[in-house]
């Protein structure tokens, strides 16, 4: 049997080669996609869809009617809550790693409680506080309430992330610092925590993005129109106009915040990788 004959029998026996089969499979997948797009194009009522979801005049009205102000509020609410979460989370993480038993138990109880609780319940609780305790005022109204409500929950999540980061710093680091005569607190502050934060930068950024979205729960507390963040703003305007366009526009603005955050984090990560 010659070589060509052998090749011919092989093709007869096996049909398409793996490469040919892969090409065929890709062709089928593209064909299905094209059919689906065509069906969508010809069956949907595009005029109606654009009218309800993407009405250009309403997009313009939203932009000129306080969209940026609402976006600024979202950023302010998130940033304050993030700072509270970061500080309280670091304290909780250190408490969880403490030599003192009761500190460990307290921190664990706090973290388990607020991690398991829907954030919306915390917001409802805060909205009811002034009724329960008459005359109670939280400073920096309305920022104080929002920051506290968001920060309390965020601290629970961040504490676990930061604790993992602290434990991921090699033991030799604290040994080297202590050998140089640094007391435990100083070694933690100067040597361990900076490295821990570098390690947990990506998951911490994740928490920040979750926080951006959770700030939409502010409407539960009931703030004035002027203090509305994106979701509240979009909801109110959509209600008034009986059209979803303002809500979609507000939703798009969340991406304007979270996408650059993602890019920033990737940059910071690359920078941190250089120093490791």
């Amino acid at each position: 049997m010659s070589k060509t004959e052998a090749a011919a029998t092989a093709t007869e026996r096996r049909g398409l080669s793996p490469r040919q089969r892969a090409r065929r499979s890709r062709q089928i997948q593209y064909a299905i996609l094209v059919v689906l797009v065509l069906v969508a194009l010809f069956t949907a009522d595009w005029k109606q869809i654009i009218d309800v979801f993407f009405k250009p005049e309403l997009v313009w009205d939203a932009i000129t009617g306080g969209l940026w102000h609402a976006m600024l509020k979202t950023i302010e609410y998130t940033a304050g809550a993030f700072v509270i979460g970061l500080v309280a989370g670091t304290v909780l993480a250190l408490m969880r790693l403490s030599q003192v038993g009761p500190y460990r138990w307290l921190a664990t109880a706090y973290i388990e409680f607020f991690r398991g609780l829907p954030a919306i319940i915390v917001f409802i609780a805060f909205s009811l506080l002034p009724l329960a305790f008459e005359g109670l005022t939280i400073p920096f109204d309305p920022y104080g309430v929002v920051w506290l409500a968001l920060g309390i929950v965020a601290a629970a999540y961040m504490a676990e992330v930061i604790r993992a980061g602290i434990q991921a710093v090699p033991k030799g680091q604290i040994e080297a610092a202590r050998s140089l005569g640094m007391p435990f607190g100083l070694a933690t502050r100067k040597i361990v925590l900076p490295q821990a934060f570098r390690i947990v930068l990506p998951p911490l950024a994740n928490d920040l993005i979750l926080l951006v979205k959770d700030s939409s729960l502010v409407f539960i507390i009931g703030v004035s129109t002027d203090a509305n963040e994106l979701t509240g703003f979009g909801r109110e305007m959509a209600n008034n106009e009986s059209n979803l366009t303002p809500l979609i526009t507000a939703g798009f603005c969340y991406l304007l915040i979270t996408l650059p955050l993602g890019i920033l984090v990737r940059r910071l990560e690359a920078q941190a990788a250089k120093a490791r």
Binding site: G172, R178, S179, I191, P194, R276
Partner: peptide, 20 residues
Amino acid sequence: LDDARRHIGMVFQQFNLFPH
């Protein structure tokens, strides 16, 4: 102990430099 350790230099097998 921290005062005593200032006078004792230590060099480790794994260097343990502060990477940051």
